[in-house]
Simulated assay, not measured.
Amino acid sequence: MTRMLTDLYRSRYLLLMLVPALVYYAVFKYGPMYGIVIAFKDYNMIRGFAESPWAGGKHFRMLFDMPQFWLAFRNTLLISFYKLVFAFPAPIVLALLLNEVRLALFKRAVQTITYLPHFLSWVVLGGIVTTFLSPSAGWVNALLAAFGHQPIFFVADASWFRTVLVASAIWKEIGWGTIIFLAALAGVDPQMYEAAVLDGANRFRQTIHVTLPAIAPVIVIMFIFAVGAVVNDDFDQIFNLYNPGVYRVADVISTFVYRMGLENMMYSLSTAVNLFKNAIAFALVIGTNTIVRRYSEYGIW
């Protein structure tokens, strides 16, 4: 105990630097968690938290009886699964490709171009995507027309909409996601590559047998976080791209909460939805980490 207090005292200035971050999380992350009681009450804005009557599990039962919720839940899982399969590996592949580039100027140019969409909001990117895919003025349909195909209204076609979501998500985040993996690649011991060359390994085999195993811990941790975010759909993206023609394939949990909470003022029901979603996300993180730890030495803890 005495030794621990001594170590804490020696590190007092470093610990002091944590105070702003701890205050931020306490005020903006943990403090608002008191609001989850709304899910168990018939919340009334005028009466407030304390005076609103308790409703028990009424709103959860109502939620599970709503076909619209299960449609939104199904769409959320499908869209997130597609993004996990196609969008998660994309930054890894780009990082591996950039790691092989020896021309510094070209490498910096590619990084800058791919990073840029991350800093634009989906309000802007949604307009760009809609314009590019427009059946009348979009260059994608102009290219299709040049090959004799009929125009496709990608954003309003239910069979194409999820593809648009996944592709635009990759476009926006692929560059930003490479930052973590490029940092991991920078820490790979060059002597490992030299030993691989002596063993006769070409660049591809060096990537498979040296590079990927070296950054495997980072990939596993990011994968666990990605699985935990399966139920946390991207509201900004979908809200700025979807329309009544694709509701049956595009309506997700966050847009369902938006309608229930802000448009219909069913605050207790929307809080119940979010509480249910966060409970699933927590379970996914715990479960994925447990499975990964069982079959490998990597994990969050």
Rank of each mutant, 00 (worst) to 15 (best):
T207D: 00
P213K: 11
M222W: 04
E194A: 13
W176L: 02
A167T: 09
A201C: 15
A186H: 03
L182P: 11
A201G: 04
D233Q: 05
V188L: 02
V210G: 07
P217N: 01
I180A: 15
P190E: 03
Q206W: 05
T211E: 04
A195P: 07
I221Y: 04
I180K: 08
I180S: 09
G177S: 09
S168F: 04
F204R: 14
F204M: 15
D236A: 14
A214N: 12
I179F: 11
A196Q: 05
I219W: 05
V230S: 08
E194F: 07
Q191N: 10
I208C: 13
Y193A: 10
I215F: 07
E194Y: 06
K172D: 01
F204G: 01
G228D: 01
M222E: 09
M222C: 08
A216R: 15
W176Q: 02
A186L: 07
N232P: 00
D233Y: 03
V166L: 04
F204W: 15
V197Y: 13
D234V: 01
Q191R: 11
G177M: 10
P217G: 03
W171M: 12
P217Q: 02
I180E: 10
A229L: 01
G177F: 09
A195E: 13
A195C: 10
V218Y: 04
P213V: 05
H209K: 11
V218P: 03
V197S: 15
A196E: 10
P190K: 04
V210K: 12
V166E: 04
G177I: 07
T207A: 13
V230F: 00
A183K: 09
M192I: 13
T207Q: 07
M222H: 13
A226E: 13
N202M: 09
V197D: 12
A184P: 08
A169I: 00
A196F: 12
V231A: 11
S168W: 04
A184C: 09
A195L: 14
V218L: 11
E194W: 08
L212I: 15
T207V: 08
D236P: 04
P217S: 02
M222P: 00
G228F: 03
L185V: 10
V231K: 00
V166G: 05
W176S: 02
T163R: 02
P217K: 03
I224C: 10
A214C: 12
Q206C: 13
F223W: 10
Q206T: 02
V164R: 08
D234K: 01
D189A: 06
I219L: 11
A169L: 01
I180R: 09
I170D: 12
V188W: 08
K172M: 02
N202A: 08
H209P: 00
A169T: 12
D199S: 14
L212W: 13
R205Q: 15
F225V: 05
I179K: 06
V230L: 15
I215Q: 10
F204D: 01
D199F: 05
I180C: 11
G177Q: 13
G187F: 09
V188Q: 03
G228M: 02
